[in-house]
Simulated assay, not measured.
Amino acid sequence: MPGPRGSPGKASSYSCGSVKARGSGDRGKVPPDFLDVAELEHHATSLRTLQTVHIPGMFQTEDHARALFDLYIPALPRLEVELRVAHRLTRHAVVAREPGIPYVATIHDAALRMQIAGRKTAKAQLSHLLEEGERPNARMLVIPFDAGGSPLAEGSMIYASASNPQLDTVEVDSPVGAVCSPTHLANFRRRMDCVERASTGGHVSLRESEDLRRVITTDPKAFRSLLVGIKVDIIGTR
């Protein structure tokens, strides 16, 4: 079953600070781990995330998020699906507010190619993601399939920085829990640094990806029009 960001596994936190209080607005309406992630993001001074098979939760469109929750087995009641969708959409406020916190999202090519609810929803989701990448406080990095392995290839991660580095928190999808220690945080920082340093530094337009064009739409002109002038960083190997 998908975790709090729509990905498989159990969410585990590595933090050297105390556990943050959960938000009260949606308490009792969505699972506690959803509230934990939202609270983590709300209090962070900056965020760095990795997603290997899903679009980052706070950048998901309403239709995309709803399609993800509709995939749950056993199926969720319609009211519960809608409550989860509404909660996920509110998480976007941390980057949209003034001033928005710095956010670096590293997304694997696989996540961009997923057609969770068909081409129309996928196209709208990609368009939304590219628009969000134009925010001055947001940076989108994409790992293509031919980039090879990476230190964080095993799953999803949120690294939330705090005003005091000793209170930084890492949220990962893991089948087991973990004991917190400063070493855990240092290791995750180094691993994320390694992924981000792999960037080629050049800005490559997604419209140059023939493969991705075929995934999103069968109309090349419509796809080029959608992406014109919008660019993202492509991570490659050195």
Rank of each mutant, 00 (worst) to 15 (best):
R214F: 04
E171K: 07
I158E: 10
A186F: 15
T90I: 06
T200S: 15
D109T: 00
I55R: 01
T169Q: 11
S18N: 15
G100Y: 05
G100L: 02
C16E: 14
S46M: 10
R224S: 08
S205T: 09
I107K: 01
E39S: 12
L35I: 05
L130Q: 03
H43P: 03
P175E: 09
E210K: 01
A124T: 05
F59Y: 12
G201S: 06
Q60R: 01
M1E: 12
I116E: 07
N187V: 13
R213N: 04
L227P: 08
R5P: 02
P151T: 06
A38I: 05
M140A: 09
H128V: 05
A222V: 11
V95W: 02
F223P: 00
R91A: 09
A21N: 10
H203Q: 10
S12R: 13
R224A: 09
A186Q: 14
V232S: 07
G229E: 06
E210I: 04
E210Y: 03
F188Q: 04
E134D: 10
C194S: 15
V94K: 01
T217R: 01
G3F: 07
F69S: 11
L141W: 03
Y103W: 12
V85I: 02
S181V: 12
E62M: 05
Q60K: 00
R139Q: 15
I73D: 14
T200A: 14
R214K: 03
L40V: 07
D173S: 10
M114T: 10
C16S: 12
A178F: 13
D36V: 06
H42K: 11
H54T: 14
G25V: 07
Q166S: 15
R84Q: 09
D211R: 00
G57I: 04
V81L: 08
E98L: 13
R5M: 11
S163M: 13
G202T: 15
S209D: 11
S18K: 14
V204L: 04
L212Y: 01
C16T: 11
F34T: 03
R48G: 08
E80W: 02
K231R: 12
H92E: 10
F223Y: 04
N187L: 14
P77M: 05
S205L: 06
A147V: 07
V37R: 00
I234M: 06
R139P: 11
E171F: 13
L141T: 01
R97Q: 13
G28E: 09
A111Y: 03
H92M: 05
E208I: 02
R207L: 00
